[in-house]
Write a protein that binds this DNA or RNA. Structure first.
Lengths: 209, 209
DNA sequence: TCCATAACGGGACTCCAGTTCCATTAACTC
DNA sequence: GAGTTAATGGAACTGGAGTCCCGTTATGGA
């Protein structure tokens, strides 16, 4: 690797026109490859060919496969779907679980998540981007648990973020470690389980945590 | 790749002595690299150097990085820890969750799991090995939920396998998508949540599933 | 203990991902 | 709309991953 952060990254001073088109073409080509073949087959020279873009440009702007995947995640993070409020914890968690399920079940987006998770295993920057992404998502949804606490649906002292994570966790587990279908029933089950566990006080913060 | 399945794989006819030593050295070197640098930095030529083994041998027997990681998983699968029985669902699930937690928190084993999950995203054989591994583990632990059902701790019709998966899921989610510590408290929380959700009937099979 | 051959290992070779250099193109500024 | 220079892209280059060939080693069976 040679195109490290010298002065300012390319694409930051004149981000419009051609630069934006190149970025869009490269990200799109990368997403195609991920969906078709997975992260291991992501090589920058091939991406450049598919995107009909100079190989030099791809190496200069993204450097490595993990860098490209990281940018892809940041790009996806832009389109954040706003949280819905249904009036009950189960309803809110179900909405969240179904959103996650639809995202992961989508071939392109699901493949992207697998790729970022794979990349995060070796690349600290990818890991940081991934953690940041989930922190933001969890933070976005945590209030629904706090509202549920105010309504008396869950005990006081319940760790709201942990409840949100517990809702997503079974879906990721399915995606990554099983061949089982990631359907709406799985989402509803995850939401139901998280709501029941929260109501039973499983996520009440203990002293010293 | 060229060393595809021709007739019989090397190492099958004379698996003793040198062949076994080579395998042990290569797997050990691979585990070192995984723990130190992650899956992306796993390259077979480097492994051969570290293991002080001919490069040709490594390519001939494992072919690719994903093949090597798959073999590493199969090797680990040999040492299966027997299930313990505590007499209560919460006790059994806690035992399971702590076992998973200790495994994932261990640098070498945790890195291996990350690597296999990464490999499974691109390589069908790795995916198959991974799915098989978890199927076996889930099958091993499922009886404890059935016993709980017999004792009346959970409703009849509860999907035992799903309860076991629900116990592990939050731990994998933590490992892969957050920077949060994977400690015993996380394991206990996962077990508690799964037990509570199961008792509340969250894993009762619906009609048509 | 001896033999047939499975498995290993060194070395030369190939090919392409990743780099470097520089000419060309086209954003943004005034 | 003219000039500055950020950003792109072609072309030549290079290092090392992955392959191939063949001689050497030592396993497992008789």
């Amino acid at each position: 690797m040679e195109y490290t952060e010298g002065e300012s990254d390319p694409g930051t001073t004149r981000p419009g026109g051609r630069t934006a088109r190149v970025r869009a073409a490269v990200l799109s080509a990368a997403a195609d490859v991920l969906a078709e073949q997975g992260f291991a087959h992501l090589d920058l020279a091939d991406i450049a060919r598919r995107a009909e873009v100079g190989k030099t440009t791809v190496y200069r702007r993204w450097g490595t496969a993990t860098g490209l995947v990281t940018d892809l995640l940041l790009d996806m993070a832009q389109q954040s779907v706003p949280r819905t409020e249904t009036g009950s914890l189960l309803g809110d968690l179900t909405a969240n679980a179904r959103l996650v399920q639809r995202t992961l079940a989508d071939p392109r987006q699901g493949a992207l998540f697998k790729a970022v998770i794979a990349a995060a295993g070796s690349d600290p920057k990818a890991a940081e981007a991934l953690y940041g992404f989930y922190t933001a998502r969890v933070e976005e949804w945590a209030p629904c648990v706090e509202q549920a606490a105010a309504r008396g649906e869950v005990p006081g002292g319940t760790d709201a973020r942990e409840v949100i994570r517990a809702t997503s966790a079974p879906l990721y587990y399915r995606l990554l470690t099983t061949a089982l279908p990631l359907d709406e029933a799985a989402a509803d089950r995850a939401a139901h389980a998280a709501a029941a566990a929260a109501a039973a006080g499983a996520y009440v913060r203990k002293a010293g945590t």
